Simulated assay, not measured.
Amino acid sequence: MLTVYIADDEVWVVLGLQKQLKKTGLAVKVVGSANNGLTARDEIGKLKPDIVFTDIRMPGENGLELLKDIGELSPDTRVVIISGYADFAYAQEAIRGNAYEYIVKPIHEEDLKNVLERIIKEINPEQTSEENQEEVKQIAHESAVSIADKAILEIQENYLKDISLSVLAEEYGVSAASLSSQLKEKLGMTYSDYVTSLRIQKAKELISTTSLSMQEVAEQSGYSDYFYFTKVFKKVEGISPSKYKKEL
């Protein structure tokens, strides 16, 4: 059983990745997680997991700094960088820092399983991974996967607007229930939770990198109602946006 640690400042990503890891059916176990780099560094040094999945942008210590520390604290740990920023410069720096792999969010289950199978074969060459899905079943799901992928890209481009799941479903010629199910399978979370996670991540970036008022941050993160924005932010992050700014 390989041990896994997850470091990402988005709680929805951590939860989603945990679900995806379980769905692979492979012999891996999540032994810990953190929402900031400093906590992750300390726990990884103690746990010495076989695999670490880490985001790049995190408070306290970013993923590339964490990658360097892991090389010293737990040199046998394979580090997989996950990021929502498809920036080749990040990939280059991650590779120079001896990252095992670089995956762009949203994480596709097939990509995740491929990485895990490679690591399992390296660590436990005698252990045979589970067989892939039957070819017929895979073909049957190809159209669904294609629709989900397209929908995810459209959501990422338009999450600041009022996106309707039913409108998206109509656009791709499927029912809202079907698209909802496909998105949940692909993302490891519901459609609304995914939109929320994108918006709150945008809010955190604005708070961290600009001097905008909280009202302006709310509006530029897709929320016309400041009080509702504050409520959602606190539900996701555990603290209010104002307190989040003070703690930076």
Rank of each mutant, 00 (worst) to 15 (best):
Glu109Ile: 13
Leu153Val: 13
Glu142Ile: 00
Ala148Val: 03
Lys231Ala: 10
Ala94Arg: 01
Val104Ser: 07
Lys202Phe: 09
Asp149Glu: 12
Leu187Trp: 03
Ile207Asp: 01
Lys113Met: 05
Tyr102Leu: 02
Ile95Val: 14
Gly222Phe: 03
Ile155Asn: 08
Gln92Gly: 07
Asn114Leu: 13
Gly71Arg: 05
Thr196Pro: 00
Thr209Ile: 00
Ile107Gly: 10
Val167Leu: 12
Lys186Asn: 08
Gly238Met: 01
Trp12Gln: 10
Ala203Met: 07
Ile200Cys: 04
Glu134Lys: 06
Met189Gly: 01
Phe229Leu: 10
Tyr159Trp: 05
Val174Pro: 00
Lys184Arg: 14
Leu116Arg: 04
Leu153Tyr: 15
Glu134Gly: 07
Thr196Lys: 13
Asp9Lys: 10
Ala91Phe: 02
Gly16Ile: 04
Ile147Arg: 00
Glu131Lys: 13
Gly188Thr: 06
Leu206Val: 04
Ser146Glu: 06
Lys29Phe: 11
Glu205Gln: 11
Pro75Asn: 11
Arg78Asn: 12
Glu157Lys: 15
Lys231Leu: 09
Tyr102Met: 04
Ser143Gly: 13
Glu185Pro: 11
Ile119Pro: 01
Thr210Phe: 07
Ala177Ile: 14
Ile163Val: 13
Lys29Val: 12
Ser181Glu: 15
Lys245Ser: 03
Ser197Gln: 00
Gly63Asp: 14
Thr209Asn: 10
Thr3Leu: 03
Ser197Thr: 01
Arg96Gln: 07
Leu38Gln: 07
Arg199Gln: 05
Glu142Asp: 04
Ser74Arg: 00
Asp76Glu: 07
Glu170Lys: 14
Leu73Phe: 05
Ala94Thr: 03
Ile95Glu: 10
Lys113Gln: 12
Lys46Asp: 05
Gln182Asn: 09
Glu122Lys: 11
Ala177Asp: 07
Tyr223Pro: 09
Leu112His: 14
Asp55Val: 01
Val14Tyr: 05
Lys184Asn: 15
Leu26Tyr: 01
Ser192Lys: 15
Val174Trp: 02
Leu66Cys: 08
Lys186Thr: 10
Gly63Val: 05
Asp42Phe: 08
Val136Thr: 03
Gly60Tyr: 10
Val31Arg: 00
Glu126Ser: 07
Glu219Gly: 04
Ile123Glu: 03
Phe227Lys: 14
Ile103Trp: 02
Leu112Val: 06
Glu72Pro: 05
Lys113Glu: 15
Glu171Phe: 04
Lys46Tyr: 05
Lys19Thr: 06
Leu15Pro: 09
Tyr172Asp: 03
Gln215Glu: 13
Ser240Gly: 05
Ser33Cys: 12
Val79Ala: 15
Glu109Asp: 11
Ala148Tyr: 01
Glu109Met: 15
Phe229Cys: 11
Tyr85Phe: 13
Glu101Gly: 02
Ile152Ala: 06
Ser143Tyr: 09
Gln156Arg: 13
Arg41Asp: 13
Thr3Val: 02
Ser164Gln: 08
Ala148Asn: 05
Glu237Thr: 14
Ile82Pro: 03
Gln182Leu: 11
Arg199Lys: 06
Leu2Asn: 04
Ala218Pro: 06
Asn124Met: 13
Asp225Thr: 13
Thr190Leu: 09
Ser143Glu: 12
Ser208Gly: 10
Ser221Thr: 01
Glu216Asn: 11
Leu26Ala: 02
Ala177Glu: 08
Leu160Phe: 13
Thr128Lys: 12
Val115Arg: 09
Thr128Ile: 13
Ala34Val: 00
Lys137Pro: 01
